[in-house]
Simulated assay, not measured.
Amino acid sequence: MLDTGSPAPDIVFEDTEGRTVRLSDYQGKQAVLVYFMRSTSCPVCNKHVQELIRSRNEFEADSVQVLVAVPEGRQEAAAWKARRQVPFPVLHGRSSAPHTMIGLERKVFGSMQQSGSILIDSQGVVRHAHGATMPTGSYDRKGIAAAVQGLRTHG
């Protein structure tokens, strides 16, 4: 998992339209919150995405772009995005799951997908990083709110 205060790696994703999306695309422009779902079929993760949607105006007011990363491929991600009416860009990895790219995978009797979030400020520094094996602990609302507050007070 990424360390708070460290430079964010320039991870390359693909969105549901097939466009390349790099975390560095947002540098110098706005902060980015990436929520990593365990899977599009995870009911708890879907609940967290709905909470992100309900908080959309607050994130926009703080100039934070929300992105949702899923381990599934582009077609399945696009179908899920349309079915759930997700207003945020939905990303998947180009050559591997986005989760693996930032260390959100844990080996327990094989591989178990983790979920979590990262907040990267407009300068490309990780301001919040949280991961969990159980989806119920993957959306750290208080931690994200504190990190966004820190963006306001520290630029």
Rank of each mutant, 00 (worst) to 15 (best):
M1G: 15
D3S: 13
S6W: 03
S6F: 08
P7E: 03
A8H: 07
D10G: 01
E17K: 06
V21L: 10
D25K: 00
G28H: 01
K29I: 12
V34F: 07
F36D: 00
M37H: 04
T40H: 15
V44R: 04
C45S: 06
C45D: 03
N46K: 12
H48F: 02
V49T: 07
Q50V: 04
E51W: 06
I53M: 09
R54G: 05
R54E: 13
S55A: 15
D62Q: 15
D62G: 06
Q65E: 14
A69V: 05
V70T: 09
A79V: 13
P89N: 04
P89L: 06
L91R: 11
G93Y: 08
G93P: 11
G93Q: 05
G93F: 07
S95R: 14
M101I: 10
G103Q: 01
L104S: 01
K107G: 14
V108W: 14
G110Y: 08
G124H: 11
G124W: 02
V125D: 04
A129D: 05
G131L: 07
G131M: 14
T133H: 12
T136I: 09
T136F: 05
T136A: 12
S138G: 11
S138W: 05
K142V: 07
G143M: 00
I144F: 00
Q149I: 07
